[in-house]
């Protein structure tokens, strides 16, 4: 499985993490193309179901990237997202899935470098975990 290329979905909030991702691009800081971003107005908008659905549909890993603590454009959406992610981690554990397949990250709009770093680390992590059970079934890993 050395050439395993995981599918990773990142839900990024418009104001911080998505801007940080743009910033990474603007500065030509490379990160793995495995990461596909879905823009949301606030990470508080990311329903726990969306995390489950992403995994169901074949994502090997999913993360939510929001603003730094205290910087949320909508006061505390990022903290709610953190709680949703935590909840799904527990569910995954119950299911016998690796809870590390979901994660929460925080970036300010200017943190392009850190965004790329986060994407890189998460991709490495998922690579080490291997394909998710669902992505294997969907038959599209590798």
């Amino acid at each position: 499985m050395s050439n395993f290329e995981p599918e990773i979905v990142a839900f990024c909030c418009h104001y911080c993490a998505y801007t940080a991702a743009d910033m990474a691009g603007t500065r030509r800081i490379s990160y793995p193309s495995n990461v596909k971003i879905i823009r949301v107005p606030c990470t508080g908008k990311v329903d726990a179901i969306h995390l489950m659905k992403a995994l169901e549909k074949g994502a090997d890993g999913v993360y939510v990237a929001g603003c730094l603590d205290g910087d949320c454009h909508f006061k505390n959406g990022n903290l709610r997202a953190t709680a949703h992610v935590e909840k799904i981690k527990k569910v995954l554990e119950d299911l016998g899935w690796e809870p590390e397949r979901v994660a929460m990250m925080y970036f300010s709009a200017g943190m392009g470098e850190q965004f790329a770093q986060g994407a890189k680390e998460f991709t490495e992590k998922i690579k080490s975990l291997g394909p998710s059970p669902a992505s294997q079934t969907v038959g599209k890993a590798v």
């Binding site: 691009g25 603007t26 490379s30 193309s33």
Partner: peptide
């Protein structure tokens, strides 16, 4: 966002970058 989050971010892996563009 084919430019900022695709073309610019994956200059090091053109084939994978194109694959991602299809998906996006």
């Amino acid at each position: 966002n084919l430019r900022d989050q695709n073309a610019w971010a994956h200059n090091d892996a053109p084939a994978k970058s194109l694959e991602k563009a299809f998906q996006l």
